[in-house]
Simulated assay, not measured.
Amino acid sequence: MLAAVDGDALDQAVGAYLTTRNTAGTASGKRQVIAVDGKSLRGSARLSAGRRHLLSAVTHHRALTLAQAEVGTKTNETAHFQPLLEPLDLNGALVTFDALHSVQANVTWLVETKNAHYIAMIKRDQPTAYRQLAALPWPDIAVQHTAYSAGHGRREPRSIKTCGIADALGGIAFSHGRLALRVHRRRNQTGGCESRESVYAVTSLDANHITPAELAAAVRGHWAVEALHYVRDVTYAEDASIFHTGTAPRAMATFRNLAVGLLKTLGAVNNAKTTRAIRDQPERALPLRGITNNPDAQGTWSSPARTARPETRPRYFSRTPATRYPSRRRGQAPQVPCLRGGPMVRPSCSSMALQRAAKVHRSMRYGAVLPVRTEQS
């Protein structure tokens, strides 16, 4: 069925829904920042066909996918840049993208047609613009903002400098460029050497419209789309998916975007933990759609007979290795609730006893009654 779904219609419906949720949750007066980037579906490749490639527009704030399109291969991303953003309301928004999309026609369309702004990364594949940016008097300009981050065994301070581009002096060879940026990164790896990197960018915003701190946050925030890709790959195993027929790979990617976006708009901090909680107790997903679990007169799913389930599993069934069998580390057997409402019983710590405890727990969840073998018996 998924192979026959209209991928464009599905992406438009999900994008419109997430756009509505994003508009409702966006703070008034705050500029919307959107990142454009592509992602390959590695599991969709076959001997007769290459992997599918999707281009997405994702918000920086909560990583909501507002638009998505299938582009065939990575080299086709540039041609799909304008059709992807055409349905979106970008009035006053700031769009970020990597050097692949730093194309004169695309940035001109953004500013003149969509009334939006951009931050374009400039690399050596545009020699004229790159040479002009590198030749600016950066040593004479003081650092205007510095941010620090630490994690994954490294410390990374990032500083930014800005320089106005005067049209009267010739400007630079990039459409609607008003402000030049130089971002300097120093990465200190624990037990390793320090690496340094300087990157250049151009924005259509003037210095009186945005602060250096906001520019630095927008450049750094572009990695929100990479974080979304990581969640789809690790939490939802997107690259391991073997869907490859018709529009099934694209439809599954759209459903993953919908799941991530829905949890983000509801304030989920840890997407993986929330997903596991819903997997273990599917009834937790109903309030996300506004469905309560109160029993009604018609005897729906939320009747007391079906909702009388334990709120949590026994601790030793935890998926986290650090909390698995916590009582065994204290030299005690794990405790299992008695089905008949009696006191807690302590099965032996042998493997067969633990298997028996698992059967007891499953019987509790689905209403069966199994005898409990204790140490005394």
Rank of each mutant, 00 (worst) to 15 (best):
L136R: 06
A24H: 10
K39R: 12
L10H: 08
P326E: 11
Q355G: 14
R155F: 05
V202L: 14
A93L: 03
C349Q: 11
Y230A: 08
R346W: 13
A368G: 08
H361W: 14
H152R: 10
F81T: 08
Q189D: 14
V36F: 11
R124N: 07
R51I: 04
A173V: 07
Y366S: 14
T245E: 12
R21W: 14
R284S: 10
L286T: 11
H117F: 12
V95R: 07
A259E: 03
R329G: 04
Q82W: 00
A218S: 15
V36H: 09
A142I: 03
A253K: 05
C338Y: 02
G246V: 05
F97H: 00
T275W: 10
S241H: 06
T96R: 04
Q68R: 09
G341W: 00
A3K: 09
Q355P: 02
R154T: 00
K273R: 15
L136T: 04
T275D: 05
G221Y: 00
D140R: 08
S40E: 11
R232S: 07
V95M: 07
S350R: 14
S204Q: 06
V202C: 04
G92A: 02
G261D: 05
A353Y: 05
Y130I: 01
T73H: 08
S350E: 14
S303Y: 11
C163S: 12
S159K: 02
D167N: 02
T247R: 10
Q144H: 02
N294M: 15
A57D: 06
P137K: 08
T374V: 10
Y316G: 02
A4Q: 15
L215R: 00
K30M: 13
T26C: 03
V143G: 05
D11V: 02
R155P: 06
S204H: 04
R21T: 10
K273P: 00
H145I: 03
N270W: 07
K114H: 08
A4G: 14
M352L: 15
H176Q: 06
A358G: 11
G151N: 00
T254V: 07
R51V: 02
A259Q: 07
L90W: 03
D6E: 12
A135S: 06
A105V: 11
L100M: 06
W138C: 02
R232V: 09
L55W: 04
H152T: 02
W109G: 01
V234T: 13
G153T: 11
T113S: 02
T254G: 01
G191H: 06
R52F: 00
A213W: 04
R289Y: 14
E226Q: 01
K264Q: 05
A147M: 07
G192Y: 05
T20K: 13
T75D: 10
L288K: 09
F243H: 11
L205G: 10
G15K: 10
A253W: 00
T78R: 11
A285R: 05
R319E: 14
R315C: 15
Y200D: 01
L205I: 09
A297R: 13
P282C: 05
Q32M: 13
A27Q: 14
M352Y: 12
L100I: 02
S303A: 15
Q32K: 14
A368H: 14
N294Q: 15
D8C: 11
S303R: 15
A248V: 05
R187L: 08
H117S: 13
G192T: 01
D206G: 09
